[in-house]
Simulated scan of single mutants.
Amino acid sequence: MTNSPAGGAGAEKDVLRASLDRHRDAVLWKLDGLDDEQLRRPMTPTGTSLLGLVKHLASVEYGWFVETFGGEVEPLWFDPYEGEDMWIAPDETTDRIVAFYGRARAAADRMLAGLPLDTLGRPAWRDESVSLRWSLVHMTTETARHAGHMDIVRELIDGATGVHRPAAG
C-alpha cells in the first residue's frame, strides 16, 4: 500500500499521486486469491465484474492522463466510447487485463511525472480543457468509486471485505 508522503504534508502533486496510488493498489488487491471465473463473473444486473472494472479503469487512465495531455495511447482492441471497456470478452484473459492496467498506470505515471499540475489538456470527448490537477483529482475519485464497487462485488463472491490490504504482521 502506498501512503501519502509525510502524513499528507508533502508537496501537492506528491500527495495527490499517493492518494491515487492507494486506490489503484486497492483495485489490484480486490483480485487477489480469486480464480478466473470469479474475476469475470457478472455480479450485478448490468453485468459488473471485478475484471471489467479493472479494464475500465485502465481505459480511463489512458484517456484522462495520456490522451488528454498529448501522449500516445496503445491501440485498443475495444471501443471505450461504446462501453466495451466495462465488460470482459470471452477471449480476454485475466493476465491480459491486469497487464493492460499496469501499462495504463505506467503511461499515466510518465505523464504525471513530466507535467506541472497547471498543464492544460483537452479530452477528445469534451469541449473544454482541463488541468492535470483536475484530471488527477477526477481519476482519484473515479478509482476510489470503482474500488468501492469492487469491495461490494468481492464481498458477494467470497465474503472478503476491506478498504485496503491489511498490514503484514
Rank of each mutant, 00 (worst) to 15 (best):
D79E: 13
A160E: 14
L39V: 01
V98A: 05
T143R: 03
G8P: 05
R122W: 11
V66R: 07
T2A: 10
L112T: 02
H23A: 11
D158C: 08
T93N: 03
S135H: 04
T143M: 11
V66P: 04
T140N: 12
E61A: 14
Y101M: 13
L28C: 08
M43G: 05
W125D: 14
D91C: 02
W125M: 09
E67H: 02
A99R: 15
A167S: 14
R154W: 12
A6Q: 09
T68H: 05
R40W: 00
S135N: 13
E12T: 15
Q38M: 10
R103G: 00
T119A: 14
S49C: 08
S135R: 05
E92W: 01
L156K: 13
L16E: 13
G83D: 10
L20A: 04
G33I: 08
G83T: 09
R96Q: 15
R41F: 09
A160G: 07
G102C: 05
R154V: 13
T48Y: 09
T46W: 06
E84T: 07
M43W: 01
R17K: 14
L31H: 09
A26D: 07
W29E: 08
M1I: 08
K30W: 03
V15N: 14
G52A: 05
V137G: 01
E92T: 01
G70I: 09
P166K: 12
L31Q: 09
G7F: 11
E92K: 00
D91Y: 04
L156F: 10
I97R: 00
R22Y: 15
D21R: 15
A104P: 03
W77S: 13
G83R: 10
D25Q: 11
R17W: 13
T2L: 11
A108N: 11
S49T: 11
G169S: 06
L117N: 03
L57K: 02
D36C: 02
A6E: 08
L132S: 10
R154L: 12
S131Y: 02
A144T: 09
E155M: 10
